[in-house]
Amino acid sequence: MTFYMAHQPFRFLVLGGTGSMGYAFAQELLQQREQVTLLVRNRQKAERLFGPHPSLQLVTGDAQDAALLKELGAAATHIFHGINYPYEQWEAHMERVTRHVVEAAAQQNATVLFPGNIYNFGLTTPITEGTPFAPTTKKGAIRVRLEEILQQAAESQTCRVITLRLPDFWGPNVMNEGIAPIFRAALQGKPMPWLYRNDIPHQLVYTPDAARVFYELAKLQPAEPYAVYNFAGEVVPSVKAWQRQIAEAAGTAPKHKLYPGWLFKLMGLFSPGMREISEMGYLWQHTLLLHDDKLRRTLPNLPHTPMKQAIEETLAWFRENWHV
């Protein structure tokens, strides 16, 4: 595989910048003194998260507004597609917004940076960049379709794409219902929750590390128009052991709470969100592993924040931003 070093100056448009990966990537860009435009629906939230910064521009709006996205994309060299919706809204929104991103990137042949996941592969493990798609869920099929849209756009020279596939991610401002309650509970000395099983190995990635990988790949710019990499992060021996580390760092006694699968099936009778979680139960019942040999060859000095430091940084963020 060949690469060319992309020329400065970069101009990054970050979508989903107040969410988990978008926040981490925007913070990385600001630390690198890059020019960043954030398209946000909640300006007040973005101002709380980022504060004033000389190279940051906030624009209030919605990525479903195709005209606005094209207007912002016209000045971008890179567009970070960190947009996400609650599971039950994926079918209605994710494909449409991804097509809007492609249209915005097409104006300057910008590079779309896309956080992938493992939903495309069902129970397949280990997963390499060449592993065939084998989704077993509706959301897995949607993720396959999103990657197909991006690949087709890149191969037709509409834009360039770098997809970085990630396992479960955690870190500052990761506010999903799998991760945030763990850190809040640890700080309060309450039982730390998890789903299905907490006694098997689980693969995790710290969002600031993934953000640095995205930035390094953007600088390197693979010569291939559609480039896919896995980032494996770290495998913890069990979520229960990982939670114990978190509680100890928080200065509280480790307590655990496990939600069984039957509970989500029962609640799914009344709640669309719970039905969607129940469908994805295999993710917490099995150890699924990404392999990232390709990325390690590409970036020999792959970033890795030591677990103890990463836990302390995340706890510090939750202490300071409890109600964000």
Rank of each mutant, 00 (worst) to 15 (best):
R165M: 09
R160Y: 10
G189S: 05
F169Y: 15
Y206K: 07
L164C: 12
G178L: 15
P191D: 04
G178C: 12
Q157A: 14
P191E: 04
I162N: 01
L166W: 00
D168G: 14
A211M: 06
A218L: 05
P193V: 00
A185T: 08
G189E: 00
A186M: 06
M175N: 15
V213K: 11
R160K: 04
H202A: 10
G171R: 07
I162F: 04
Q203L: 10
L195K: 09
T163D: 00
N173R: 00
F214I: 08
I162M: 06
Y206R: 10
F169W: 14
Q157K: 06
W170V: 13
L195A: 10
V174N: 08
V161M: 01
E177S: 10
P193R: 06
L166C: 02
I200M: 09
L187C: 06
W194P: 03
M175Y: 14
K190W: 14
P201C: 10
I179V: 15
V213C: 13
L217D: 01
H202S: 09
T158P: 04
D209N: 11
V161E: 00
R197P: 07
V205P: 06
A186R: 04
M192C: 05
A180C: 09
M192E: 01
P201M: 10
A218V: 04
H202M: 10
N198W: 12
P201T: 08
Q203W: 10
A185S: 15
Y206V: 02
L217T: 04
P167K: 12
W170Y: 14
V161A: 01
L187D: 07
G178N: 15
R184G: 07
E216L: 12
V205Q: 00
Y206L: 02
R165H: 11
A180P: 07
L220R: 09
G189D: 00
P172F: 01
G171W: 08
P167N: 08
Y196C: 01
P167G: 08
W194Q: 07
H202G: 03
Y206S: 02
A218E: 06
G178Y: 14
W170Q: 10
L204W: 11
Q157G: 02
T158G: 13
V213A: 13
L204I: 13
L164Y: 15
P167W: 10
V174Y: 05
P167A: 07
D168N: 14
I179N: 08
M175H: 14
E216N: 08
Y206A: 02
Q203K: 11
E177I: 04
L204E: 09
L204Q: 12
K190Y: 09
G178A: 15
F183Q: 08
R212I: 03
V213N: 13
R165A: 08
A218T: 03
L220C: 02
W194F: 02
W170I: 12
C159R: 11
T207A: 06
V213W: 08
A185L: 09
F183R: 13
I179K: 02
W194M: 11
Q221C: 13
A218R: 00
T163V: 15
L164P: 14
V161T: 05
A185R: 15
P181W: 05
R165L: 08
W194N: 12
P208L: 00
L204R: 13
R165K: 15
Y196N: 02
Y196L: 07
L204Y: 11
A218Q: 03
E216I: 06
